[in-house]
Amino acid sequence: MAIEVEVRLPTVLRQNAGGQASVKANGETVGEIFDDLVRQFPLLNGQLVNDDGSMHKFINVYRNDDDVRYLDKLDTAVGADDVISILPAVAGG
């Protein structure tokens, strides 16, 4: 059975999710959560995951306090009490 978790969105993505700062999504991994987000908010398509299935370079994704890049990336398991936070990945030269 799918798990419902809270997903916190950065300001730059909120406009594509009905203006909400926090939404609910279902899934047992970060990748499944993202699939569900895109189902709910089609405007998020291409902003979370690249065409090749990898995580978008311009976002940081956290399961609670941990950057999922250092866990199992999109395969990172998610439990009912977890909060997924998405923030901009800020970089430059």
Binding site: N60, Y62, D65, D67, R69, S85, L87, P88, A89, V90, A91, G92, G93
Partner: peptide, 15 residues
């Protein structure tokens, strides 16, 4: 000295 990348944990804590 040519690039920067805000540490992801620092980004989360600041936010």
């Amino acid at each position: 000295s040519r690039r920067y990348e805000v540490d992801s944990r620092d980004m989360l804590n600041a936010d």
